[in-house]
Design a protein around this nucleic acid. Structure first.
Lengths: 343, 343
DNA sequence: TTTCAACACTACCACGTTTTCGTAAACCAA
DNA sequence: TTGGTTTACGAAAACGTGGTAGTGTTGAAA
């Protein structure tokens, strides 16, 4: 149980000053070769590594970035983390992750916890509750303190900062258009409640695709689901009435639930019902039939977000107080992955 | 762009000493009421929060725990993180996550990066490569420095530390036994290569269940898969020969691949082929047919691991150098979740 | 008037590092 | 010897915090 060795201990042991040790280890020319090598050998032997905390305090840089997301047991978010971690790691940064559980309070608490020096910048996706409340003071506060924030996926226009998103509206449009191209006329939209920004945008794209193709927009075909487990009744009722022959679901969980419900009722996918889902995840790939999806590469989003954040962090370092806040919003391209659930 | 305020700045502004400010904020009786309230009001106005880095340096406690896992886009691991984060958060700890990508070098690098003061303790699951090499010096080193380590799932006997595992052998035994109870005789085992500790244990349980029931153990029925994407040929060949009527897969990805392959060949699950998988994940739940699984609650493992680590961290603090290293290994119970893939 | 406690606050140290500045000794030139 | 330069190192400040010890003033008891 030998604690990590410090400069001070080395100095004491070799009977030199702390500065001498520090300089020797950084190969300063100020120190004579004999002393320098002696110190280096000693340090190597005791496996000296500078203490990160002390360095952080001194440099006012922690070399770690905070991630705040609603949940982690979630294919999309975990791919984003993966993407962030990759470029973070390449650049010598660690990632510290906090989960908001889609709760506003937890989001605020976590941000405050991390904002007091623990990290250099944030990458975050808003919790549902935050989007619902529209209260972003915790984020503006952090930004005002000079801490860069990059938002992804679930963003808001009320905050000025770097953002990484996909063109939800265009992607939804493309998906619905492809259903129409296959001759579908009664296309349902299965979505979440409106305050989640992406849900709204996808709805917009859905509507536009319909109207552009001369298909009337029918409110009854928009099914808003708050809880996956209780939605089966609604869906089976609509299926029973043959109210629709295609469905665009805003996530793959909804899609697979619909397919299962349809199968139970003897309907065939894609013959009787075509299905497209947003978010290309593991379920879509392995479900039977496998599901056609709009892929939103979480990994790419993570890569991009991390790059943007780190760039800003390093730039800040250079020209200190330049305040050139030209925030950008990166749009990650999506594409349709055709599988068995559509023809 | 106002930087966070510090004790020093408050002191200067109010023309008192730093100590006075510090004590006022901690409600020390040493400070007169007038000054105390004045300082507190000022601090509140400027939203003073102590700097975590400075506190960490002073207290030699970072209040954060490091997690090292092979991958994060992985249902089981993400549930474990979720579990860890829950109790970490409850106890005022942050989690910093590093991914080894199943690479030994990255595992070592990440550990070294975090071990230099960034965290108070580790929770980790070994990378495949590390298990293969059997080289654990990076872990022993960390432990020798007095930093507690809790391992979960992919553990090793070569390291003395707290561990959280499931009884892989017993769980596998139970699964196979249930297949036998349903009249299955030719039970295949689809597993990974041996050096992953859990793979080995599950194989042992499989074998024991067979032998206990007087069923000969047949090497040919053990299918070792290294790459999921290329295994279909092997499986379809064996299925074609009707070599087995039930299969126990060590993860759900293998299971769903087998089911898909069987379905393509016109075999019915579970009538012609019963399937049980290890790891109760999202795929098993939503695949068609849904898959009977051995649930290993990642969340519980995470909870337990975090509890063990934090307990050790707080204990350490009290009796400094007591060195009472009574390491324990917690076994999380599993249970069979019966779904449509078995009868 | 002296003494002593209570009060209200300040000084100082430590945590581990880097860096700026300072200085003693040694060397060289005049 | 004197003055100046180089060599080789040390002292100290700074980052922000919190605890212990110390200090000066005041009022009251002896």
């Amino acid at each position: 149980m030998k604690r990590k060795i410090t400069l001070k201990q080395i100095a004491k042991e070799l009977d030199v000053s702390i500065s001498t040790v520090s300089k020797s280890l950084r190969n300063s020319l100020e120190i004579g070769e004999e002393t320098r090598l002696k110190v280096q050998a000693f340090a190597k032997f005791y496996n000296y590594k500078p203490n990160n905390i002390a360095l952080s305090l001194k440099n006012r840089k922690t070399k770690s970035i905070g991630i705040i997301i609603p949940e982690i047991v979630h294919y999309f978010f975990s791919t984003v983390i993966n993407g962030i971690e990759q470029v973070a790691n390449e650049n010598g940064y660690s990632v510290v992750i906090c989960l908001s559980d889609d709760s506003f309070d937890k989001e605020v608490l976590n941000m405050e916890m991390l904002a007091n020096g623990s990290i250099d910048g944030f990458i975050m996706s808003l919790s549902k509750e935050t989007q619902f409340k529209g209260d972003f003071h915790h984020i503006t506060e952090v930004i005002n303190q000079g801490m860069p924030v990059v938002m992804f996926d679930r963003v808001t226009n009320d905050i000025l900062c770097d953002k990484v998103i996909i063109d939800d509206k265009a992607a939804a449009y493309e998906a619905v258009q492809s259903l129409i191209d296959n001759g579908r006329k009664k296309i349902a939209l299965v979505t979440t409640v409106d305050y989640v920004s992406v849900g709204k945008l996808r709805t917009d794209g859905y509507e536009k695709a319909l109207l552009d193709n001369g298909i009337p927009f029918n409110e009854d075909l928009i099914i808003k689901i708050e809880d996956v487990d209780t939605c089966e009744i609604t869906i089976s009722q609509l299926l029973h009435d043959r109210a629709f022959d295609a469905v665009f679901a805003v996530n793959e969980l909804f899609a697979v639930t619909i397919i299962k419900t349809a199968s139970k009722m003897g309907l065939k996918v894609p013959e009787d019902l075509a299905v497209i889902a947003f978010t290309d995840g593991i379920i879509s790939k392995y479900s039977t039939p496998s599901i056609t999806t709009v892929s939103q590469s979480g990994e790419k989003m993570g890569n991009k977000a991390a790059k943007m954040l780190i760039e800003r962090l390093e730039a800040e370092h250079d020209d200190d107080e330049e305040e050139n806040e030209n925030y950008t919003t990166e749009v990650i391209e999506t594409h349709l992955i055709k599988r068995e659930s559509t023809d």
